[in-house]
Design a protein around this nucleic acid. Structure first.
Length: 281
DNA sequence: ATTAGACCCTGATCGC
DNA sequence: TGCGATCAGGGTCTAA
């Protein structure tokens, strides 16, 4: 479900409820998500104040004043919903608990943050804040697309050294952090590159512009609150609306907005790729 | 060292 | 209305 834009949308929605605030109560409704939850999670969270709420790739990171960091991944179907008002409200009302509400955090000032994840591909962990570069889930992730080290020379080198299809390369989190199936399809359409083309067979002057294209697509999607195909919700429960701006994703059989040609769907390493056979080569 | 495929899990949708 | 097959935005692990 959530790629970088959806995760960033969720992070921004959580900020007013969580950043700078203390966790009053942590209710943990099951011992595991994708993996077992950390030891003594409830005790380690309750009473801790969130100093900063950051994002790294598709992870939300909450730095606590206990020098631990809570790591959150939404998997495919994870949602983080905020209920109650943060300030000046006498009667806090929260929605009835839903199926798959796995973690519920009651914050100082009355906001409640509920992590709901039907498929349970999501994950949470607690680590020493100093371990962020060595944690097993984070250590191999590549550059942030909006960071300084993600530039044309880097991407050209990373793509041209590989024989895999460009679709697979961009999906690889070691190459660039945060892209998923939707945004890779959209990026390749804008770049005019066939998703099946091998990285080593793409000219440098066709790879370089993808740096800007990736940033554009992600920025626009964040601006739109992400894409809601089925699971993604903003923290207030609202849908994202970038799906209305898709050029190719989930549009197989429909006409290309650029040339009118019928858009195609193929399967690459188990995932759908959508592209225009005329505009992408 | 890459890379395709199986797998983790639930729910929605579609064809019959 | 029911039932099975298929599919879904994630990533890890295995076997080739």
């Amino acid at each position: 479900m959530p790629e970088l834009p959806e995760v960033e949308t969720v992070r921004r929605g959580l900020l007013p409820a969580m950043e700078g605030r203390r966790i009053i109560r942590a209710q943990i409704n099951r011992p595991d998500l994708r993996w077992p939850l950390p030891e003594r999670m409830q005790a380690r969270l309750e009473g801790a104040t969130i100093r900063q709420l950051r994002r790294r790739s598709k992870y939300i990171l909450a730095d606590l004043d206990t020098n631990e960091t809570l790591l959150i991944h939404l998997g495919m179907s994870g949602r983080m919903l905020v209920s109650g008002a943060p300030l000046g409200v006498f009667h806090q009302t929260h929605p009835a608990p839903q199926k798959h509400d796995h973690i519920v955090l009651d914050m100082q000032d009355g906001a409640r943050v509920t992590f709901n994840d039907a498929r349970r591909f999501g994950a949470m962990d607690l680590m020493a804040s100093t371990d962020q570069d060595v944690h097993w889930l984070l250590s191999k992730i590549g550059p942030e697309p909006f960071g300084n080290t993600f530039d044309a020379p880097y991407l050209v080198e990373a793509v041209r050294r590989r024989a895999s299809p460009i679709k697979t390369i961009l999906l690889d989190q070691r190459v660039v952090a945060g892209l998923g199936n939707i945004y890779v399809c959209e990026v390749l359409f804008r770049a005019g590159i066939d998703p099946r083309r091998q990285g080593r067979r793409i000219a440098a002057d066709r790879i370089a512009p993808m740096v800007g294209i990736i940033r554009d697509v992600l920025s626009e999607a964040i601006e739109a609150g992400g894409s809601s195909l089925r699971d993604h919700r903003q923290t207030d429960g609202e849908l994202g609306y970038f799906q209305h701006a898709f050029a190719v994703y989930d549009r197989a059989g429909e006409p290309c907005r650029n040339c009118g040609q019928k858009l195609q769907r193929i399967v690459q390493s188990g995932r759908s790729s959508f592209y225009c056979p005329d505009c992408q080569s």
